[in-house]
Amino acid sequence: MLLQLKNIFKWVNTGGQRIFLLKDINLEVEEGEFISIMGPSGSGKSTLLNVIGMLDTFDEGEYHFLDESVHTLKEKYRSNLYKEYIGFVFQSYHLLDDLTVAENLEMPLLYKKVKGSERKALVADILDRFNIVGKKDLFPSQLSGGQQQLVGVARALIASPKLILADEPTGNLNSQQSEEIMELFKKLNKENGVTIIQVTHSEKNAAYGSRIINLLDGRKV
């Protein structure tokens, strides 16, 4: 088992009232799964994804990732954990505008303290795999949305994570670009055995996954 959420609650207090963002979420994810999280706006999809990605905390419950109990870990160890095993893909790509494609790809490796020569090899490798060798010296603003997201996915993959978390990865893309990205995810899932959890609004994209989780008002339905 890759990860397990047990009775997760998350809330905020506004005006004396407790508003639940996540309510009693239980979830087990096996390695190699491709899960889609669906639900209307404000149902807690992104919050759940952020909790799984350890970017966000929760107020109650247990979270086990591999053999670690995430809820007991300090921030530093948490960041070591997700740096090692998790890659993120965002709706608005979140590439650094000041860095070229190659430099953006290289960045996660820097934080994992990978050696220079190895970094170069890995970057060259992934550029090749994603067919974007010709774009390696361009800046994000010089690419189309689809190409930027391609780089985003490549960046998430470069450190060979076990799990990819994608928050509406195709939200800003047109249908053709969307399809390309989803095909890419499917291929990664099938051929490389990467576990993927995506948040999506689209039934069509959700269908790429092996399992769908529906959320409403912070609750699994």
Binding site: S79, Y82, K83, F88, D98, M107, P108
Partner: peptide, 16 residues
């Protein structure tokens, strides 16, 4: 801010 957030999701620590 975006850069800071992104670096954090890539595993940057406060120190770094």
């Amino acid at each position: 801010l975006k850069e800071i957030g992104m670096r954090k999701t890539l595993g940057a620590q406060k120190k770094q």
